[in-house]
Every structure is written in structure tokens, then in C-alpha cells.
């Protein structure tokens, strides 16, 4: 299993696998414009099963739009997205919903229902998709996931009383309640304090190892990204400018990519080998 680690300010990035596992999500020629604004321009790449793929890039380059294509919330102008082989833009609703039931997504602000308690929010997918489950069983399961995201004993809390970071964690608990095979995160770390942020990164690593879940993570937090990601895709102005195993992307020569990563990391020499380092001052 791939595992990147940080010690003594050095980021040890696991060597790339000989070949990535078969793709669970395939993007083919994905193109999308909003009016004159081309947000995605012929983007193609594969997201391998059981690995964590990070999507990076400056804000406004279409990362969220790409994630919404993956779950079928936005239809592309051209190209296609296949999840588990289902064409997310053209599949009829039953097939689309069947695919979505195998996916969980964390929205940028949690997208929780404020009129529900925390527990009711997390239980929501179970109530809909596993109505045969007993109330006790459901509660136990919700409490287990809440504990996993570091919010034990909050079942009865009012959702409106949560802080931003707590909302995200509740959103994460809801995203994983159905034991999905794919979990998508839109900026899980933005607006979080470093400790919570690290806890979420750790959670991603743990779940990947324990459950073999495929993660797709959009993030601004370069250090966190490099720590959790097995594969990195970088979008820049709608183009995919890099895609590959983390170690290879860190050594790639693309100037925009290097400039982007270098804001937070001291990179190994282009084309060379070696680990990235964290800057001395935080």
C-alpha cells in the first residue's frame, strides 16, 4: 500500500506503483463552457480504484465543476464521465441513482439541513435507502461514523449550532454512512484549523487503508494533498496540465505546476529524484 509520510520537515513520497489499478472513474474529453467562459477544455484522465486522487489548481479553474460532472450534477458540452461504467450525464435516472448510491460526496460547506439534528443529517441516506434498518441499528451506525469524524455524542446537537469545521465533519460522516466505494471531497480542509485539517487527512488515509475506498479530493492545502494523494491531477485554466503518481508529479517540469507547488513546498529537482521538504517557517 502506498503511504506518504512527513518526518523532520521532509515529505517522503512513496515510489509510484508499476501501473495504476484499473480506473473506477474515467473522464473522456470533458468539455464545459458557461457562456463564453470555457471552464473545462477536453479533460481526460482516469481515477484509479482504491487510491486517493487529488485535484489541484488555482481557484476558479473548474475543479468544483469537474467534481459535479463526476456525480452527474452538471452535463458536459462534450465528452463523458464514466463511474463504475455508468455514463453520468446520459444514464437514465435509475441507473444514475444506482451509481450515486455507491458514492458519497462532501460539499464545500457541508450542505446539511439546519432543521435536522446532527444525527438526523447523518442518518438521512440510511432512512431513504435502508428503510428496513431498525431505529437502534441506525443510531448505532450514525454514532459510529460521528465518532470516526471526531464528533462523538453529538447525535442530538442542533445542526445550526455547529462551527464551520464541525459542519464539514458532519458532512463527511453523512458522505460515508452508506459505506460508499467512491468518496469525493470538495476542499475538505478549507476554513479548518490545522489540527482538524490534519485529522481529516488522517481519516482519509485510514479509510483508504481499511476499506479500500477510492477518494477524489479537491484541495488548496498543498502539503495535505501531497501527504494523502497517491495520484495528482492539476487543472489550470480548464486544461489538465499534469496527471500521474504523486512522486512523478512532484518531479515534473511543468513551470506552472512547479510554481503552484513551490508556494508551500520545497520541491525535489525537476526530473530528478528525492523527497519534497516543507518550508522551515510555517
Amino acid at each position: 500500500m502506498l503511504q506518504n509520510t512527513i518526518s523532520d520537515g521532509v515529505l517522503h513520497v512513496a515510489d509510484p506503483e508499476p501501473a495504476p489499478p484499473p480506473p473506477l472513474i474515467r473522464l473522456r474529453g470533458l468539455t464545459k463552457s458557461f457562456g463564453p467562459n470555457t471552464v473545462l477544455n477536453n479533460v481526460s484522465f482516469d481515477i484509479p480504484e482504491g487510491r486517493t486522487t487529488a485535484i489541484i489548481g488555482p481557484s476558479g479553474t473548474g475543479k468544483s465543476v469537474m467534481l459535479k460532472h463526476i456525480v452527474g450534477l452538471i452535463r458536459p458540452d462534450a465528452g463523458e464521465v464514466l463511474c463504475f461504467g455508468t455514463d453520468m450525464a446520459r444514464a437514465p435516472e435509475p441507473a444514475l441513482y444506482a451509481a450515486r448510491r455507491r458514492m458519497g460526496m462532501l460539499f464545500q460547506d457541508g450542505a446539511l439541513f439546519d432543521s435536522f439534528t446532527v444525527g438526523e443529517n447523518v442518518a438521512f441516506p440510511l432512512v431513504h435507502h435502508a428503510p428496513q434498518m431498525s431505529e437502534d441499528e441506525r443510531r448505532a451506525k450514525v454514532n459510529e461514523k460521528l465518532a470516526l469524524v471526531g464528533l462523538p455524542g453529538t447525535y442530538e446537537r442542533a445542526t445550526a449550532s455547529l462551527s464551520g469545521g464541525q459542519r464539514k465533519r458532519v458532512g463527511l460522516a453523512r458522505a460515508i454512512i452508506m459505506e460508499p466505494e467512491i468518496v469525493l471531497f470538495d476542499e475538505p480542509n478549507s476554513g479548518l484549523d490545522p489540527i482538524t485539517s490534519d485529522a481529516i487527512d488522517q481519516l482519509i488515509c485510514d479509510m483508504k487503508q481499511a476499506l479500500g475506498v477510492t477518494f477524489v479530493v479537491i484541495t488548496h492545502d498543498i502539503v495535505g494533498t501531497v501527504r494523502v494523494a497517491d495520484y495528482i491531477a492539476m487543472l489550470y485554466r480548464g486544461d489538465l496540465i499534469a496527471w500521474g503518481p504523486t512522486a512523478e508529479v512532484l518531479r515534473a517540469e511543468h513551470p506552472v505546476l512547479r510554481a503552484f507547488l513551490q508556494r508551500n513546498l520545497i520541491l525535489p529537482p525537476a526530473g530528478g529524484s528525492g523527497d519534497a521538504r516543507l518550508p522551515a517557517v510555517q
Binding site: V71, E93, R100, M105, D109, P125, H128
Partner: peptide, 14 residues
């Protein structure tokens, strides 16, 4: 606006 409708869609709830 708060993406709750999108969240319902993604949770396969019409």
C-alpha cells in the same frame, strides 16, 4: 444556494 438540493441529488434522493 447552500447546495442542499445538489446534496439530495448526490444522495440519490430525488
Amino acid at each position: 444556494i447552500r447546495e442542499q438540493i445538489d446534496a439530495l441529488e448526490v444522495m440519490a434522493v430525488n
